[in-house]
Amino acid sequence: MSLGHALLGLLERGPGHGYDLKKAYDDRFGQDRPLHYGQVYTTLSRLLRNGLVQEAGVEAGAGPERKRYAITDAGVTDVETWLATPEKPEPYLQNTLYTKVVLALLSGRAAAGVLDSQRAAHLDAMRVLTRRKTDGDLADQLICDYALFHLEADLRWLELTADRLDQLAERIGR
């Protein structure tokens, strides 16, 4: 995720202090990982340097937390371009799970056990997300669903691979 673009997007609603931005970000996107102030101020000074935001008044007192920032026209264009550009689909072709399964087979260990314990860990994670979704608001639901669909895709792969272990063992032929 590009923090710079997220902060710019939040600034489109109107100028704000670094603190306001951190709070707005944490409320909407922070979930279990709130931003550090350091990250916010480093990002804001980069945006300032690149002309994507400008200072919009400084309150009495010292320190970066007194500054208000406003988005510039260049900043608005930057957000627009970012939103219009699709993210690169990540196919995750070389994943750790596949490597573990192959290495287990090569070394004569129980590859089915590797798949089983991974499957159990995935379903545990899905149960936690499902509970959180059930107790949560729409934002929680959408965020949890995103994670749930990804975990489900992994699980399908684990199941399919479990059904093809014998074939795979033959193919890699030790």
Binding site: H122, M126, R127, E152
Partner: peptide, 12 residues
């Protein structure tokens, strides 16, 4: 057979 449905249960 759907993992997302099974995730509503306590265990599987």
């Amino acid at each position: 057979h759907e993992p997302r449905v099974a995730a509503y249960a306590d265990r599987e």
